[in-house]
Design a protein around this nucleic acid. Structure first.
Lengths: 237, 237
DNA sequence: TGACGTTTTTGATCTCGATCAAAGACGCCG
DNA sequence: CGGCGTCTTTGATCGAGATCAAAAACGTCA
């Protein structure tokens, strides 16, 4: 939303001790390659609400999310918004044809990314097919998620959408931080609504309904999943 | 829908004279590679309604569509269906992680595909990074289309959905067969509904409405686009 | 602490698209 | 040509979720 007033760290970081070392694109590189790779990326910080890149911008960089959460979205000319995904640490952004991102990305809360200039990154990939293969894997996984989300948007009820979202979000955090029934929700109700193809009121009402039925408890900055089994049942239809 | 009673042509086809030579994955191969590639694929025919592969099946093949139209879809346990796309000649199917297709594919009308066994195809790619790069390009293009479709499913009205679909479908046929205001629609109204996240009745009513307003004419097996500008305006909102 | 802007929740009402129902239109085969 | 199954269109009604409106909760900063 605000103009990007970013902080670029001069340097002094090492891929080998990077938090997302195992999960990200770089997992396909060996120790020697990693040393070289190190010089390509810069750590960049964004504050809450800042835009990392936007839809019609020419792509000049790729991004690897290191910490924080981002919302990825597209806008219609009249302002309607569809959030196409949330990015978490380890996610890789910026792949595109046509030289333009085809979605925008905002920081939700504080975000750190590892930014790569397009050209040198492209050259680095050139003779490292296993890195390309890794990127391909990530693209295919995203494609699969995108198709799942189409089913949700096109064919599921509001209750199913919300239950599916909560379980899916929890699942992502599980692989990131380990299992917990406390599910932080850093994004706003409006973000959730725009992700699920609903209005903010419907999301809010559905949360309250889930709480009344003892499925969740609404806590500060998130929810607590009291009855995962019932949530699962609601999500499956 | 029916069990796959397919016809496999013994052989006698050449990539170099293939109809989709320019558009498909194989566009990244030179003449020498193409000769080798030829031995990997088999032409396989499917009749209307036959299933080429389905969702939970282990992937054993990749497919290159040569002629005809396919519907790609996912089913919910209770039978609700979301069509995630239509495949046309030149489209490449079968990329996946986890070893399973994550959607099903039926022939709409008669279909011919070029089928590749997974293992030899994988080996062939191994030392041809430009083929991998081409596959990556296709995946990224699909991802972009998937995100556009999410916007449609989550944030557009029935009128907008139908208008957007007609224009988008026409656009795809343009790149395949050249420009024409006559737009064949080989898929059923139910297919269109399941693609747009609507019911068959709403699709039918919207078609009639567009016809009443002089935007289209409903003809046998398709529509005729009488007023592209107005259709465009409806699609953009 | 309290005033103010923002976000979330709750309530009342409306509407678009779904559902239910039936009539046409079309294709296929005897 | 006529009978039958399937697909499409049209009509009548319903309801999930949107919209409009206001209250409540929360965060921030003087």
């Amino acid at each position: 939303m605000k103009p990007s007033v970013v902080t670029i760290e001069p340097n002094g970081h090492f891929c080998s001790e990077c938090a997302v070392r195992g999960a990200a694109v770089c997992s396909s590189l060996n120790a020697v390659e990693l040393r070289e790779f190190e010089h390509l990326g810069r750590r960049v910080h964004f504050n809450a609400g800042e835009t990392v890149f936007s839809e019609e911008e020419i792509t000049t960089s790729f991004y690897n999310v290191l910490e924080g959460v981002m919302r990825l979205y597209k806008l219609l000319p009249d302002g309607r918004r569809q959030i196409v995904g949330f990015a978490l640490p380890g996610d890789f952004l910026g792949m595109n044809l046509s030289g333009r991102h085809n979605f925008s990305a905002d920081a939700i809360g504080v975000v750190t990314v590892c930014q790569f200039a397009k050209a040198p990154f492209g050259r680095f990939i050139e003779d490292r097919p296993q890195l390309l293969k890794r990127i391909n894997e990530l693209a295919i996984r995203e494609l699969s998620q995108a198709r799942d989300h189409m089913v949700l948007l096109g064919r599921r009820s509001a209750d199913e959408k919300v239950a599916t979202f909560l379980l899916g979000w929890r699942e992502r955090l599980v692989t990131l931080k380990g299992l917990s029934d406390t599910v932080p929700l850093p994004m706003s109700r409006q973000d959730i609504a725009d992700y699920l193809g609903l209005t903010i009121e419907t999301v809010s009402r559905t949360f309250t309904k889930l709480e009344r039925h003892g499925v969740i408890e609404i806590i500060h900055g998130g929810i607590s999943l009291l009855d995962p089994a019932r949530a699962e049942a609601m999500a499956a239809a």
